[in-house]
Design a protein around this nucleic acid. Structure first.
Length: 879
DNA sequence: TGGTTCACG
DNA sequence: ACGTACGTGAACCAC
């Protein structure tokens, strides 16, 4: 349609607020020369870019709230009362956002006594009723505007960052919540809104509100039928709060007839005034935006001179060289080196000829401590060529991980964060998915040379930041030495007997086939049992199992294990399905899945990802050897396939006992928890005694201990009554009691939690015992859920992270002891609080002592560290 | 590609 | 009143 007009209406106040908090963690980076904060301006700009590009509007208007008093406050003095004060860093940016809009040719408007909502509502209504054909998009961070969605009006609510939105149309709203846009107002009238201080009806939340609306259609409908309702607390609340409910409805209703003095024509998008905009960018210090203006400007790339040598001598190397080795995919155990580059700030070399690496000169250069990006990957790659890479003195990838876990640790990211060099991403240079391929040589070598250049420039910047964070030791004494240990473990691999797995596969398949037939029969039809969607339909529609047992997911009914377990007693098919789930999981992920990873040497070589987790733990991929079944016997049998690589050796497993609770005892300094560990008490029994007031350990029943154990877990995770009640299947009230008593009896723990959250709010991050840092940008979020999550994270991360640090130290020390002692024993696996070693029989006695001693002495805490050991001919037996 | 489920600490 | 336990990876389905 040629005459189609597109109107974009933006809730400026709410979007600016979103932008401010989306970039809050980087607030110090966003300041112009005058010290003005610019994060909200910048974020607003990004969001506009995204919207203009995507929607291509012909008309745009940004509406702002006018001031503190509105017609709503006249009706209800407390409207929006109790809101936190707008931070000054935010307020100061407001005039500049308007300046930016003016320079970009975007209309903006506010109206005394009215909110941005009302302006938007009025214009949207005008557009719906206009004789011309308008397609309207409303953008806000505030869900209230959903009530404005209509035939030609989409309401997009920003979800995350500046580019993710949830688009509401009347159909989508119906599908998602089962209500119309008008009913959305009624829902808010019932629920109220804490952030606007709209009261609503006591004790009615979204669930109850939706139920009432489904039944009665509207707020008015509910009160028309109130007398027919059964006596209940809810009915009483509805009656008592009737006036409040209708007041809330009025407050929540957006005024689509507000007396605005502008019309649709005034919102026409004229495009930017380039001169004004350039001056504005200069004032704000927005270099990238400024460059993008000129057309020629944004350097998408930079040039770097390099040489491609046909052979190398020692003259090609210097002690300050950086080395970079490239592969196309992720799995460096099976991928070949496609090219490499090295050099310093004077000279860079690049090549695709791996024979160069085998030269004496190259090997000599690599035998010294190198500057590198991804030492572990490089060491493994070179090992395939028979080349040793013993040590590094700097690894830019690990350094980036320690500095911040918010973004990935790719070189393009490092370039963006720590240099002015715009390095293209690997995805741009090599393509992605099926299109990934080695580019022509000049392109490849030039890209590799640029990487070396970026590394050279970034290193001093990163070193300085590490020092600022007190993280230099963490890099040089922990992550770098660990990378070496992990490389050796990955190269060693663990032997897995395909034969054993094969036998299990055959046995399992018989059971699976039988279960499949039984389930089909009981269901009365064949369907895909693996599809939660199809299964949900069978259980809850065809077989009409009670819906109270399930919860809704986005795609249908939940068929998760906790749901099925509750259904099992009333429907025999469910027990079969549980059995089916368990065994097919084993079959596909482990029994069959693992076989694909057994290489020609009969071993599995996992990769430990050292730069991923938010807490400092490792992760394990291709395959994941950190989640091999152990809890259920049937799954545990998988471990029989994991064996030593020689006949005369065993597997030795050693794991820390209760390391996270010990770390918590240390960090919190809680005297009771410390005492319990010092006495060598069973910690869950000890907790049970204190929390449930039991005098003697022998009077603690298994159930008491189980409950106490759940409480202890909860404490480590940043407890909530809901989580605990869910886990233990007890009421929330009961769970709340447990928690309160726990905090009374362990005041040090309570104090720790309060302190760590306070500190996180203050600094924006938390730290482990060894200065590993986790940034928590959401810790001051206005969103209850988001903030609570960040608070639990603040509690958990130092505990989980310090425990991870401790095992890392133990691994480094143990590796050193193995090398120095000339042992043949090899470390093979790490599973968060456990290490698995392959030990020749004649070293077993010595090794048991050495491993235990090394793990227990890794660090000195206020409580003892204890490691328990087991050995056997298979991992199954080493339990 | 995102959602769901389930394996581990 | 809100709607949650912390940290991961892989298989499978459905779009």
């Amino acid at each position: 349609m040629t005459n189609q007009k597109k109107l974009l209406l933006i809730d400026g106040s709410s979007v600016a607020f979103r932008a401010f908090f989306a970039l809050y963690n980087q607030i110090d980076r966003f300041r112009n020369n005058n010290g003005l904060h610019t994060n909200a301006i910048y974020g607003f700009h990004l969001m506009l870019d995204n919207l203009l590009e995507r929607i291509q509007p012909t008309h745009v208007l940004v509406a702002f709230d006018a001031g503190k008093t509105t017609f709503r406050t006249e009706m209800f003095a407390d409207y929006k009362a109790g809101r936190a004060k707008t931070p000054e860093e935010f307020r100061e940016q407001f005039p500049y956002i308007r300046e930016m809009l003016a320079a970009r040719g975007i209309a903006y408007y506010d109206l005394a006594q009215y909110e941005a909502d009302d302006i938007i509502g009025t214009l949207a209504k005008m557009a719906e009723n206009a004789s011309e054909n308008y397609q309207v998009t409303i953008v806000s961070g505030d869900k209230d505007l959903i009530q404005l969605t209509d035939v030609n009006t989409v309401v997009e609510i920003s979800k995350k960052g500046v580019a993710e939105f949830e688009a509401f149309t009347p159909d989508y709203l119906m599908e998602k919540m089962g209500i119309t846009p008008t009913q959305f107002i009624d829902l808010k009238a019932l629920m109220g809104d804490k952030s606007d201080n709209i009261p609503g009806v006591t004790k009615i939340g979204e669930k109850t509100g939706l139920k009432l609306l489904l039944e009665h259609g509207s707020l008015e409908g509910i009160y028309d039928h109130i007398n027919e309702m059964k006596k209940s607390k809810m009915k009483e609340n509805l009656i008592n709060d009737k006036d409040q409910a209708f007041l809330s409805k009025t407050l929540a209703t957006i005024d689509t007839q507000s007396p605005i003095e502008i019309g649709l024509d005034d919102t026409a998008f004229t495009g930017p005034d380039l001169e004004k905009l350039a001056a504005f960018y200069d004032e704000m210090g927005f270099v990238q935006f400024k460059n993008a203006l000129g057309g020629e400007a944004v350097p998408q790339d930079f040039d770097v001179a390099y040489t491609e040598p046909s052979q190398v001598t020692e003259d090609h190397f210097s002690s300050d060289d950086f080395f970079y080795f490239e592969i196309l995919g992720d799995n460096y155990h099976i991928e070949p080196i496609i090219g490499f580059a090295w050099g310093n700030d004077k000279q860079i070399y690049a090549s695709t000829d791996t024979d160069l690496l085998k030269s004496e000169a190259f090997q000599a250069a690599l035998s010294k401590a190198v500057n590198i990006y991804d030492f572990k990957r490089s060491k493994v790659l070179l090992s395939h060529l028979g080349i040793d890479l013993p040590t590094a003195n700097f690894d830019a990838r690990l350094a980036k991980y320690l500095l911040s876990t918010v973004e990935d640790n790719e070189l393009s990211t490092i370039a963006r964060l720590y240099t002015d060099l715009p390095l293209e991403t690997n995805e741009v240079v090599y393509g992605k998915g099926a299109k990934r391929a080695v580019p022509e040589k000049e392109v490849l070598l030039s890209h590799l040379a640029k990487k070396v250049k970026v590394l050279q420039v970034a290193k001093p910047v990163m070193l300085e930041k590490l020092a600022e964070h007190s993280q230099s030791e963490l890099l040089f004494d922990m992550e770098l030495p660990l990378a070496n240990v992990l490389a050796k473990m990955e190269i060693a691999g663990i032997k897995v007997k395909g034969q054993t797995l094969n036998e299990m596969a055959v046995e399992n398949q018989v059971v699976i086939d039988k279960l499949t037939q039984e389930i089909y029969e009981m269901a009365g039809e064949e369907f895909n049992i693996n599809s939660p969607k199809q299964l949900g339909v069978i259980l809850f529609e065809k077989m009409e199992l009670p819906l109270e047992y399930t919860k809704k997911t986005k795609t249908g009914y939940s068929t998760a294990v906790d749901v099925l377990e509750r259904l099992a007693p009333i429907a025999p098919i469910v027990a079969k399905i549980l059995e089916y789930r368990q065994i097919t999981k084993l079959q596909s992920t482990y029994v069959l899945g693992l076989q694909d990873y057994i290489l020609e040497d009969g071993k599995i070589h996992t990769r430990y990802v050292q730069d991923l987790t938010q807490t400092g733990r490792l992760s394990s991929v291709d395959p994941n050897l950190q989640n091999i079944p152990v809890r259920l016997e049937q799954g545990r049998l998988i471990r029989k396939a994991f064996v030593p690589s020689t006949e005369d050796a065993v597997l030795l497993s050693s794991d820390y006992s209760q390391i996270e609770l010990r770390v918590l005892a240390h960090i919190s300094g809680d005297e009771h928890l410390i005492a319990a560990f010092k006495e060598g008490a069973d910690i869950h029994t000890s907790t049970a005694m204190r929390v449930f007031g039991i005098e003697k350990p022998e009077d603690v029943t298994p159930n008491d201990r189980r409950n106490a154990k759940a409480v202890n877990f909860g404490i480590v995770y940043g407890i909530s009554d809901f989580g605990l009640s869910n886990n233990l299947g007890i009421s929330r009230k009961k769970a709340k009691e447990y928690i309160n008593t726990y905090f009374e009896r362990y005041p040090g723990i309570k104090a720790y939690m309060e302190n760590v959250v306070r500190e996180a709010k203050d600094k924006g991050y938390v730290e482990t015992l060894f200065h590993r840092r986790r940034e928590l940008p959401d810790i001051n979020s206005r969103n209850f859920n988001v903030r609570n999550f960040a608070e639990r994270t603040a509690i958990n991360s130092p505990i989980q992270g310090s425990a991870a640090d401790i095992l890392k130290i133990a691994m480094i020390n143990l590796d050193k002891a193995l090398v120095e002692g000339g042992y043949k024993t090899k470390m093979l696996l790490q599973v968060h609080d456990e290490i698995v070693l392959e030990v020749p029989n004649d070293e077993l006695v010595a090794m048991k002592a050495l491993v235990k001693e090394t793990m227990e002495a890794a660090v000195e805490l206020a409580v003892p560290l204890i490691a328990d050991e087991n050995d056997g001919r298979t991992w199954y037996e080493a339990k």
